[in-house]
Amino acid sequence: MDAIRHHAYGPPETLVLEQVPDPAPGPGQVLVAAQAHGVHLLDTTLRRGEASGPLPLPQLPAIPGREVAGTVVGVGPGVDGSWLGARVAAHLGATPDGGGYARLAVAPEATLHRLPDRLGLAEAIAMIGTGRMALMTLEVAEIGAEDVVVVTGAAGGLGSLFVQSAVAAGARVVALAGGPRKVRAVRGLVPDAGRQVAVLDVLDPAWPDHARAALDRLGAPAATVVLDGVGGDTARDASALLSAGGRLVVFGWATGQPNPVAASAVTPAGDPVEVRPVVGPGAPAFGDLRTYQRAALERAATGEWRVLTHRVAFAEAARAHRELEERRTVGKVVLG
């Protein structure tokens, strides 16, 4: 079968298309002919050989990826035969070399989600990991109609879902995106919420001033919630928009630099804030992850969430990694 592997740690070009033996499902497993493969920023970190987050470095050669969607073409001993031919999405587990960048993937039966015909495979992939994390983050944030929410990375797989969810909750939103293309994408998600949402380009050096002006137009002296997965300078400046006692919800640091306000729980102006981590030390213990996956898939299937995807041909996994690292992607990155 075709698979994307890397035999060394390094730049995106270490990812190469190769022929490897077909896997076979064991007891309690199925074989999925994958047509969509999820790509995470964490995949790029592991490819570079940088230990980060919950996963150790993979043993090489490795097939990256932990999310697939496609059709069940084989079942192992003890698996219900009704899975054969089913359209499914699955998370392959928290391993550094999950085998997701392959045309055939073995998945435990317990990880499968049957997909309705109305839900595309790329959109389903976005819900298995990214949609799940979005719901967990929103649970921590507790956004209500009285809130004023700042979203960093608003054109990303997570950020785009946060913007929609905050608007649906009745909150006012300042969405931060990098560049005109991303700004347009975010505005397209909530075209009828112009008076409720301001979308700003963080590549404009004056964006913090524009953000304060936007808050004023929205009738808010400051933000009550910041949802940050970017970190670094953007996170610092976004967190500076919080009111005293506001909620700083941290779910990652895509720049590789932590949010400095999260470390001190004090804004640059000296106002104390409540830091609510979603990952890492201090994060809550979430329940059954499949419950969040099912709920996310339902939101996408019903149209409650419009899912942005950045699709790259399977053989061009190196390009997908490079574009993700260079922050040139809009929405969830999917190979297919």
Rank of each mutant, 00 (worst) to 15 (best):
V149K: 07
D209F: 10
L158I: 11
A185G: 03
P221T: 10
A145K: 15
P205D: 02
L135E: 00
R184A: 15
R172S: 06
R181F: 00
I128M: 14
S160F: 09
A171N: 07
D209Y: 08
V202T: 14
G194E: 03
R184W: 05
A169R: 14
V197D: 01
G188I: 08
A193W: 02
G131F: 12
A166K: 09
P191N: 04
G178M: 00
A141Y: 10
L176N: 08
D201Q: 08
R195I: 02
T130R: 01
G194D: 01
G131T: 11
E146M: 11
V149G: 10
G219E: 06
D209E: 15
R132T: 15
E139M: 02
E146A: 14
A155L: 03
P205A: 01
D201L: 08
I125C: 12
A168W: 02
R172N: 07
P180Y: 01
G178P: 11
T137R: 09
I128A: 06
V150Y: 00
V226C: 09
P180K: 08
H210D: 10
I125N: 07
R181T: 04
D204P: 15
R195W: 05
R187N: 11
A222Q: 04
E139W: 06
A214N: 10
D209N: 05
W207K: 03
L200H: 00
L158F: 07
A175G: 09
T137E: 01
A211H: 15
H210V: 00
V140Q: 10
E142R: 14
L158Q: 04
G131I: 13
A214W: 02
A175Q: 07
G129S: 14
D201C: 06
A155V: 08
L189Q: 02
V190E: 01
R132V: 12
A169T: 10
G188N: 14
L203K: 13
I128E: 11
R172I: 01
V150A: 02
K182T: 06
V199F: 13
R187M: 02
L215F: 08
V149N: 04
A145S: 15
D216L: 13
A177V: 10
G178W: 03
E142I: 05
V148W: 03
G157S: 04
V151E: 07
V151D: 04
G229W: 11
A154K: 03
A171H: 12
A154G: 11
R195N: 11
V202I: 11
L218H: 04
Q164F: 09
A198Q: 10
G188H: 15
G157M: 03
R212H: 15
E142K: 13
V140G: 12
A193C: 06
P208Y: 02
A198F: 14
A175F: 14
A155P: 14
A185V: 05
D216P: 02
D147P: 15
A185N: 08
M127V: 10
A222Y: 15
Q164P: 15
L203N: 12
D147Q: 13
A223G: 10
K182Q: 05
G170I: 12
V150L: 01
